[in-house]
């Protein structure tokens, strides 16, 4: 039982990192329909921004905030400079997937050429360990979980109650009608890319803190798990992404504790594929065809 509880504890931390990233991934996808496989590269790049600031003497949480801003700007810049021109050029959505992979490959390997194939880590103390029954979490892990809870609630509340949030949901489901209401679609789309990049930045730093060492391709490697969480929850639904992240996080860590640490991701993917076979629209998306930011 103790093993199980401590595994759930690790699972919650993994889920927190996954949730931040998966919400960012799914939010942007629902608004723009671009399946952005360069999301992991944005995580890595902003993770490196934090690394440089951190090694210049900045506190890791301040560095994380800077990574969030730069993630947002990088994401926005990729969309404005590459994706939007390609969409205007008439490329279809599958062509766009290839474009996003190209961008990921260029960014990851460009970064690798610049920093080399070595491992990097932040200088940040894990902090005091807190014990809740058999749950042991460090101060650092607690802060990460806190940030995840805060950010996912913030996104949810913004989407649910603010004017621009409602416009974003409207745009996701019916862009033409959103224009009829006077929604400035370009601006809202840009905002979605920015917010998605901010979440990628925070998610990237949180991930790199959690796994302690990272390389120029770590973000892209982790992206598959993020996609698994987003798809599991029903792609396009931020609430689903949080729940998907919880399932994936806890299943992988419990699997690692009881079965095989190396195969923990396989278990998560197994759950994903099994779920998709039963519910092709994902666990928590109620309207299969009319996905978008459901609720």
């Amino acid at each position: 039982m103790a093993v199980f509880i401590s595994a759930v504890g690790f699972g919650v931390v993994t889920a927190a990192i996954l949730a931040i990233s998966a919400v960012g991934f799914t939010l942007q996808f629902s608004v723009t329909n671009v399946f952005n496989l360069a999301f992991g590269s944005v995580m890595t790049l902003s993770g490196f921004v934090a690394y440089w600031l951190n090694h210049a003497g900045l506190n890791i949480w301040v560095a994380m905030a800077a990574a969030a801003v730069s993630g947002g700007l990088i994401s926005l810049a990729i969309n404005e400079a590459i994706y939007t021109p390609f969409i205007r050029h008439g490329l279809n959505l599958f062509g766009m997937v290839i474009v996003t992979i190209s961008v990921a490959v260029i960014f990851d390997h460009g970064l690798q050429a610049a920093v080399g194939p070595t491992f990097f880590s932040y200088t940040a103390p894990a902090g005091k360990a807190f014990r809740f029954a058999d749950f042991v979490l460090t101060r650092q892990e607690l802060i990460i979980v806190g940030i995840a809870v805060l950010l996912t609630i913030l996104v949810q509340v913004a989407l649910q109650y603010t004017r621009v949030g409602k416009a974003m949901r409207g745009l996701a489901i019916n862009a033409s009608l959103a224009r009829a209401c006077g929604v400035p679609t370009r601006g809202v789309i840009a905002l979605a890319w920015f917010v998605s990049g901010v979440l990628a930045g925070v998610g990237g730093v949180a991930l790199f803190l959690d796994i302690s060492t990272f390389t120029a391709t770590t973000g892209s490697e982790f992206l598959i798990v993020i996609i698994a969480a987003a798809v599991l929850g029903g792609i396009g639904s931020p609430r689903g992404a949080v729940l998907g992240a919880l399932v994936v996080g806890i299943v992988t860590e419990v699997g690692a504790a009881y079965w095989n640490a190396e195969l923990k991701d396989v278990l998560a993917f197994g759950v994903l594929i099994a779920v998709l076979l039963v519910r092709p629209q994902g666990l928590f998306s109620r309207l299969a065809t009319e996905r978008a930011i459901a609720r």
């Binding site: 399946f35 599958f94 798809v231 792609i235 197994g270 594929i273 076979l277």
Partner: peptide, 30 residues
């Protein structure tokens, strides 16, 4: 049979990607 028959085309692409990664992890660990 698993992916092409049941899943929407955008999900197909994602699931293929996932399968490719899972296969590598399995081959490495087992």
């Amino acid at each position: 049979l698993i992916t092409l028959r049941r899943l929407r085309s955008d999900y197909q692409a994602m699931v293929m990607l996932v399968i490719s990664v899972v296969a590598t992890v399995v081959a490495e660990s087992v």
